[in-house]
């Protein structure tokens, strides 16, 4: 199963270290931290960033034209 990981900038080091430990090279989409405790407008900004990143990754994977 192919996957894309959405992570916040603060947790990127954790994800990278975990990936190294597991000898994995995940596709990462990084958004600003945090995504919890935000106003609707703030969350919409994070969602926009995440969506654009996921679309770009799906294109690079050949899933979207």
């Amino acid at each position: 199963m192919r996957s894309i990981l959405v992570v916040t900038s603060s947790f990127l080091p954790l994800v990278q270290a975990q990936a190294t430990a597991r000898r994995a090279e995940p596709r990462l989409v990084v958004v600003d931290h945090p995504v919890g405790g935000l106003s609707p407008d703030e969350l919409a900004g994070r969602t926009e960033t995440a969506y654009a990143g996921v679309v770009a990754e799906l294109r690079s994977m050949g899933e979207l034209s």
Binding site: F11, P13, A17, Q18
Partner: peptide, 10 residues
């Protein structure tokens, strides 16, 4: 375990 603060210990 590698639970270093700021990296794997969050």
């Amino acid at each position: 375990g590698g639970a270093r603060p700021g990296v794997l210990d969050r």
